[in-house]
Computed example of a mutant assay.
Amino acid sequence: MSGHRLFRFPKPAWLNSANTRTAGVYTAGALFSLGFFAFIDAAAFSKSPKNGSDPPIHINFVDWIPGICSALGMLVINSIDKNRLNGDSFSYSGNGVAWKARLVLFLGFALMAGGLAGSVTVMVLKYIVPDYPFPTLWFGVANVVANAMIMLSSAVLWVAQNMEDEYTYNLAL
C-alpha cells in the first residue's frame, strides 16, 4: 500500500480502467444532453400554442442566462489539468501556476453555482410567485433541472478525465 492513501482500504482495480473512464465520459455527455433537452423542450413548448391557447408567459433570454453560465462554468472547470492544482514544484509556464489554476477552477465553480442559483431565482420570481399552473411552471422547473444536470455532468466528467490509469502514458513535449 502506498503511504499517500487517506483510507486503509485499497482502491478497487476497476476504478482505474480505461473502460470506466470511457463510461464516465459518456455518462457526463448523456447528463449534459438530457439537461439541455429538458430546457429546449420547455422552450419549444412555451412558444407553441397548445389546443389553440397561448401560454400566459414565454421563455425569453433571461431564462437562458443561467444555462449559459453553467455551460461556461463546465467548460472552464474541465479545461484545467488536475496536475496543475497540486503544486509549483516544476512548471514551464512560470511561478504561481497552482494558485492561478485554483483561481480559474474557483471561477468555473462560481459560474456553475451562479447558474444554478440563477435558475432557482428565475423559477421562483417568474413562475412560482405569480402562481402559474403546472404546464407553465414546467418552464422554470426545466431550467433548474437543466442546470443541475449540467453541474452533475461536470462533476462526472472531472472525475472521469482525471482518473489515473497505470497503463496510460502521457506524452507531452
Rank of each mutant, 00 (worst) to 15 (best):
L116A: 06
V124D: 14
T121N: 14
Y127V: 02
P133K: 11
T136V: 15
V145H: 04
W138K: 05
P133G: 14
G115I: 07
V145F: 15
V120A: 15
V144A: 09
Y132S: 09
V120D: 07
G140D: 02
A113S: 14
P130I: 11
L125M: 11
V120C: 15
L111F: 15
F139C: 00
P135M: 10
A110Q: 09
Y127S: 02
L137E: 01
S119T: 04
F134T: 12
V120T: 12
P135Y: 13
A142G: 12
P133C: 04
N143S: 15
G140L: 05
P130N: 10
V124M: 10
V129C: 05
A142Q: 03
V124E: 13
V120M: 13
G114I: 10
V122L: 11
P135F: 12
G115Q: 08
L137C: 04
V141N: 03
V145S: 04
K126H: 14
G140N: 04
L137I: 04
N143G: 15
L137P: 01
M123G: 02
S119Q: 07
M112Y: 02
L111Y: 09
A113V: 13
F109K: 06
T136A: 14
M112N: 05
K126L: 05
P133I: 06
L116W: 03
V120L: 15
V129M: 12
G108K: 02
S119M: 09
Y127I: 01
M123T: 05
V145T: 15
F134W: 15
V124G: 05
L137R: 10
M123D: 03
L116C: 12
G115V: 04
W138S: 02
L137N: 01
G140T: 07
V145E: 06
G118D: 05
T121F: 14
G118N: 07
A110N: 07
V124S: 08
L111D: 03
V144W: 01
L125R: 12
G118S: 11
L137D: 02
L125S: 13
A142L: 11
Y132R: 08
P130Q: 12
G118R: 01
T121C: 10
P130Y: 10
V145P: 00
G114D: 11
A113N: 10
L116N: 00
L116G: 00
V124W: 07
T136N: 05
A142S: 15
W138M: 05
M123L: 14
M112I: 13
M112W: 02
A110K: 08
Y127L: 02
A113W: 06
S119I: 03
N143Y: 03
V141T: 08
A113F: 12
A113H: 06
G108R: 00
G115R: 03
G115P: 06
D131S: 13
P135W: 07
N143H: 11
K126S: 14
P130R: 12
V144L: 10
T136G: 03
V120Q: 09
L125D: 13
L116P: 00
N143K: 06
M112G: 09
W138N: 04
S119P: 02
G114N: 12
M123E: 05
G108P: 02
F109R: 06
K126W: 05
F109H: 08
L111E: 05
L137V: 07
V124F: 12
A117Y: 10
G115H: 06
F109V: 09
F109N: 07
W138D: 00
G108N: 03
I128H: 11
F109Y: 10
M112H: 00
V122S: 08
A117H: 07
M123R: 11
L125P: 00
G114P: 05
G115C: 09
M123N: 05
Y127G: 01
